[in-house]
Each structure stands twice: as structure tokens, then as C-alpha cells.
Nucleic acid binder design. Structure first.
Lengths: 194, 194
DNA sequence: TGTAACCGAATGAACGTTCAATTGACAGAA
DNA sequence: TTCTGTCAATTGAACGTTCATTCGGTTACA
């Protein structure tokens, strides 16, 4: 993140999220973002050199948000399995409480923006990296099977993302029961078999 | 699908896929699609009433392709587990042999086009529905645990999609070993525990 | 001879971006 | 306290470009 967060910037982010969620990247002109933010177009260009840059900065902002959310109140005294369930649960909960961000990030992840922005990422802030470290730990202490780390990470995130999508756009209800059912599937898949 | 497939239309589809994969929906103007297809702009409008319609028709075309691919050479004498592995393997193989389609469909799935096109879908051609039926069968014959069908479907597809993404964009190699490792995760997760 | 396929210059609207002008906040001088 | 200079913040009309779409005409062929 290269911009300092101010109230004004947060409003611009919020409006951009709402509009992109509803209309997509290219269905949301800068003029509309300005209008919805109650700000002049010039003001947006005062903070962001271009629309592309605004979108990339917004992406970084979202990654930080979810990362902070998942790993806040971290209790390392809990069993690994408990923590695994918490991580997965929080991952879903965040996106289901912030569907704008979910929609935006999914669009971003599947657009050429990802390539454009790859260089400017601080890899350490990658939302996946904390999760990856946590899964690594699971293998090290033999709670998880010994699996290629990329397969392991993408499996956990993939299943959770796809669950969230089914809840947001589809016919699935967001209940504890459904959530736990999904997490149990992946837990059974990756846990150390005994 | 509302258009008859002709050689010319397949060329237009192919060019559109390539361009959208590289540049995204709105980075690919009709003029470029025409140029790459070696066809006049007017010709495209002869077959498709609008750019949006072209994209939606292309989406339907892709869904049919993958569906035919997965369920061709279907051998119902094989064990359920074998067929499960084949479906998952073919799902990944198709997208990894057709990365243009993968990129396009992922973009489509996460764009407002999805909503626009929902009404015009024949639900039966939904790529997921054949897979859903196959998973249903697995539960009926007690090869799979009794799980909410939407959770089950989205888990299997989510994990495979996410695997394909890691191979295409990321650091994961597409080897039989990796593929099997991924499928075993989800199989362990959903199979009837004994 | 009629019709479907095909062509591409022209059109007009929409959009990202610029920039000259204005306002507001505030530090230091008087 | 008042005045003044400075600079960041803000404004939005205007600009130039790009793009989807149109349409009048041409070709292929049945």
C-alpha cells in the first residue's frame, strides 16, 4: 500500500467496491466513483495517478483487511485442529460479511490486473502467505499429511472460496452446520490419517 | 447456444478467447477480434447482435466443450472411486489444455455477465449439473458421505479449479503425482469413512 | 435474380485524464 | 491578534481518444 489511509480515501475505496461489485471493472467509470464518493474527479486523481492504480491499491487494502481479520485474537494455545477450523471459518465469515470485497477480489484475481500488479506486491503481505505458514506448521507437527505446500494451500483456499461463492450467488445458506460440513471435508482430506 | 456453429464462428470464438485471456473483457475491442479473426467488424455483427451476446454465446460454447470432454468415453463398469478420479482428472486436464477457456470462464464467472446471462441459460447444460448428478449417485450408493449436494459439488469443483489456477499462474507443475495428490485430498474428504 | 454472407468507413457516445483556478489550513512575521 | 505566503486539497469543464455499433454497399452462390 502506497497511499496513506485517510477518511476521504476510505470513502473512495468503499464507493469503488460497491460499484465494481455491481457493475464490474469497466462498468464503473471514474465519474461515477467520484459522484458516489461525493468528491470531484480531480480529487481522486490527487490521490491516485490512474484508475488502474486505484484498483491495485484497493486490492492491497482488501488483502490487509482480511489478513488482519483472520489472524486477530490468535490463540496459539488451542489445538491445531481448532485453529484450523477457526482460520477456515474466519476466511469464509470475512468474505460473507464483506461481499463487495469478495466480488472485487475474485474479479481482480481473474483479470489481467493480477499480472500488472504482481511486481508491486510486497509478497509478504500476500493474503495466502500467513495461511501457508499456518499449514506448514501443521505438517511440521504432523497434524497434517505431508503434501506439496501449494496443493495444500490452494485446496484449502479453493474450497473455502467456492463455498463462499455458492452462498453469495447460489442456493447455499450460511449456517454453522453448512460451514462445518465444508470444513470437515477439507480437514478429513488433509489431516494426518491414523 | 443460439448460433449455429460454422467455421467462421469458431474462428471468431477462438480469437475472442485468445484476446480476452490476454487483455480481459474490456481490453479487447471488437475491432481487434475482427482483425485477429481475419474478418470484418460487420461480419461479427452479422452473427452476434452485440459484444455482450458474443461473450455470452462463447461462454455457453465453452461449457458444452468441457462437458463433452469430461463425459466422453464414459465407462460405467468402473468402480465409483475410479470414475471419481477420472472426472476430477479430466476436469483439470481440460482446463490445462485449454488455458484460454479457463481464463475466460473464470473471468466470466466473476463478472456481472453471469447475472445477465443467467436467464438465457438452459440450466441442463450447466457444466456443473452432470458432475452434480455423478456426485449424487455416489451418495446414493454410499460411496460418498451424506453431504449437502451444493457443498459437495462446490468443494470438488472449487478444489480442482484452484489447482488449475495454481498450475497456470503459479508455481505448481502439472504432473500425475500432483494431480493425484490433489484428488486424494478431496476423495479422503468426501468418501464414506469406514 | 434473390438472398445470405461479408465488408469497413463513418458515427456518436462514453470514458480516462488533464489543468487552470479556487479554497482551506496553518506557520511565521509584524 | 492580524497579515501574509505557502502548499496541499479540491474542483469540474474541457480534451482527445477509444470503442461498440450502424449502414449502405459488394460479393458469392443457389
Amino acid at each position: 500500500m502506497n497511499v496513506q489511509l485517510t477518511e476521504k480515501i476510505e470513502i473512495i475505496f468503499k464507493s469503488t467496491l460497491e460499484l465494481i461489485c455491481e457493475k464490474g471493472f469497466h462498468g464503473t467509470p471514474m465519474s461515477q466513483i467520484a459522484k458516489q464518493s461525493d468528491v470531484a474527479i480531480g480529487t481522486i486523481y490527487h490521490y491516485f495517478p490512474s484508475k488502474d492504480n486505484l484498483i491495485i491499491e484497493l486490492f492491497c487494502y482488501c488483502k490487509q483487511k482480511i489478513n488482519n481479520y483472520i489472524f486477530s485474537d490468535w490463540d496459539s494455545t488451542l489445538s491445531y485442529k481448532s485453529r484450523f477450523f477457526i482460520v477456515m471459518r474466519k476466511f469464509c465469515a470475512f468474505y460473507l460479511e464483506n461481499t463487495d470485497m469478495f466480488s472485487f477480489m475474485e474479479q481482480f484475481h481473474n483479470s489481467p490486473y493480477l499480472e500488472i500488479s504482481r511486481n508491486s506486491w510486497e509478497k509478504n503481505l500476500n493474503e495466502e502467505n500467513n495461511i501457508m505458514a499456518f499449514l506448514y506448521e501443521g505438517m511440521r507437527i504432523a497434524e497434517l499429511r505431508n503434501i506439496n505446500i501449494y496443493i495444500l494451500t490452494s485446496s484449502c483456499i479453493g474450497i473455502a472460496t467456492s463455498f463462499a461463492k455458492k452462498v453469495i450467488y447460489g442456493p447455499l445458506e450460511f449456517t454453522d452446520e453448512n460451514l462445518n460440513e465444508m470444513i470437515e471435508i477439507i480437514w478429513n482430506g488433509v489431516k494426518q490419517q491414523n
